[in-house]
Simulated scan of single mutants.
Amino acid sequence: MMLRAIATVLAMGVALAATAAANAEPLKVVSENPAMPPGYTRLVLHSDRIGRDFAVTVNTPSATVFLPGQKLPAIYALDSGYGLAGPQGALLSNTSAMEPAIIVSVGYLPGQALFRNTDLLHNKTTQDKSPYGGGGAAFEAFLLEDLKPFIEAKYPADPARSVLFGHSFGGLFAANVFADKPDAFYGYIIGSASAWADPALIARVAAAAPKAHGRRIYLTVGEKEGAGKPGGSAQMTDGYNGLLKALKGQPGVILKARIYKGETHLSYYPRLVADGFPAVLPPAMALGAYQAKLPAAIMAKYVGDYRLPDGRTFSISVDKDGFVNGHVSGFPPIGLQQNGPDRFYAAAADANITFDATGATLAGLDGGTMRAERAKTP
C-alpha cells in the first residue's frame, strides 16, 4: 500500500533530539541537539495549536552572513524531507548550485509518521474504507504563524524569501497553501501532488494563480507513478496535468514543470531536490561559469585595504593563480567572481561587492549592506 511505503520512508528520515530544553511561545522546545555536524541542528518542538510534538531539522549553509540585516532564503521541507532534503540542500547551497538557503525539514517522531495523513490534507477523504485528513488548515496555521516566525527569530531567514516543498500528500498540501494564500511563500515545489484526494483543488489553484505576484513554482510527477496498480499512473498524472493547466501561462506564476521519465512515485525524489531547489532559488551566477583572469592594471584598482564601519578591515588581494579574493577580519578569505563592471560576487557570503573611486559597497542578495572606505593601496 502506497501510504505504508511512504510511512516507512518517513520513519527512517525522522530526526530525534536529546539535550537542552528551552521555551518559546507559541512553540515549546522539548529538546535541541547542538549542531552536529556543523550547520546541522535537530529539535523537537511542541505545538500547543496542534497538541503534538514535531521533529524539526535545520541545515544551514556555509555562506558567511556578516552584513547587518543580511538574510538567507529558507526552504520548508515537509515529511522530514525524507531525510534527504536537508543534507542535499546544504550540498547544493555550498557548491553554488543554488542560492545559499536554510533548509527546515518538518516531520514526526518515531511511530508518529502517519499523522501526516491528518496534517497534510485540508479536506477529509477515504481510501480502502479508511477515513483520514481534515487537519490541513491547522497545520497550515502552525507552519505560517508558529514555525516560520520561530525559525526567523532563531536564524537569519528572510520572511519574504521562503519556499514550501512537498511531495505526494506534501505536494497536495503545498498546492492547497498556494490556493489559500499564494503569497505565503516566495516559491513552491509541488512533487506528485495527490490531487485525487481533493477534487476542488485544481479549480482553487487556477483561481489563485492570477493573484500570485511572481511566485516561482516547480511542478513534477514521475512517468511511472503507480505502475502495477490499475489506474494508478493515470491518477497521479491526471493530477499533474490538471495543476499544469491551472498554472501554465498565468501572469502571476513563474512555472517550471517536468515529468521524470522512467521514474516511480518515490524513485525520483533525490532528483526532485537537485532540480527543484535551484529552480526556485537559482544561483547568482551560472554553475561553472568561466572566470577570466583580469589584467594586472585592472586588478590594481581593487587591491588594498578597506575600512568597515565597525573597525574591521576588508582586504582585497590577488592569489598566485591571478584571481581576486576578499578577506574580512575574523572570517576566512572568500573568492570573488566578476559579474559586472567594478562588481564581484562572493558566493561564500552570498553578496555583491561593488567598487568605486573611494571604496566599496558590500550588499547581500537578500538584504544587508555595508560601506567600506578605501584605507590604503599596496
Rank of each mutant, 00 (worst) to 15 (best):
N325P: 03
G322V: 10
D305Y: 02
N325A: 12
A297L: 08
V324P: 02
G322I: 08
V328K: 13
M285L: 13
F314T: 03
K293F: 05
R343M: 11
A372E: 13
T358V: 10
R343G: 12
G304P: 05
G335P: 07
P333L: 14
I334R: 04
A292R: 12
G304H: 06
G311A: 15
V303G: 03
I353Q: 01
A292I: 00
G304W: 05
A360W: 01
A292K: 09
K320W: 08
G326T: 03
G368D: 12
D305V: 02
I353M: 03
F323D: 09
Y290Q: 14
A357N: 10
D342T: 05
G330A: 08
A357P: 00
T358H: 04
V318C: 09
P309K: 12
D350T: 06
A351K: 05
F344G: 06
R371L: 13
P341K: 12
R343C: 11
D356Q: 10
D310S: 15
A346Q: 08
N325V: 00
T313N: 13
P341F: 10
Y302P: 04
V324S: 03
F355K: 13
T354F: 02
D350L: 08
D356P: 00
A357F: 01
D350A: 13
A351Q: 05
A289I: 04
D305T: 05
T361P: 00
T313F: 09
V303Q: 13
G368W: 03
G364E: 14
D319W: 03
F331V: 12
D305F: 01
A348Q: 14
I334D: 08
L287C: 02
A349F: 01
L336G: 02
H327G: 09
R307W: 02
G367C: 15
A292S: 12
I316M: 07
I353S: 00
D305I: 01
Y345F: 13
P333D: 13
P332I: 11
A347S: 12
L336V: 06
G311Y: 11
G335W: 02
H327I: 10
A300H: 01
F331H: 10
I334T: 05
L365A: 10
A300P: 00
D356I: 05
G330P: 09
G326R: 02
Y302G: 04
T354Y: 01
L308V: 09
D342F: 02
A300R: 07
E373P: 00
D321H: 01
A300F: 02
L365T: 15
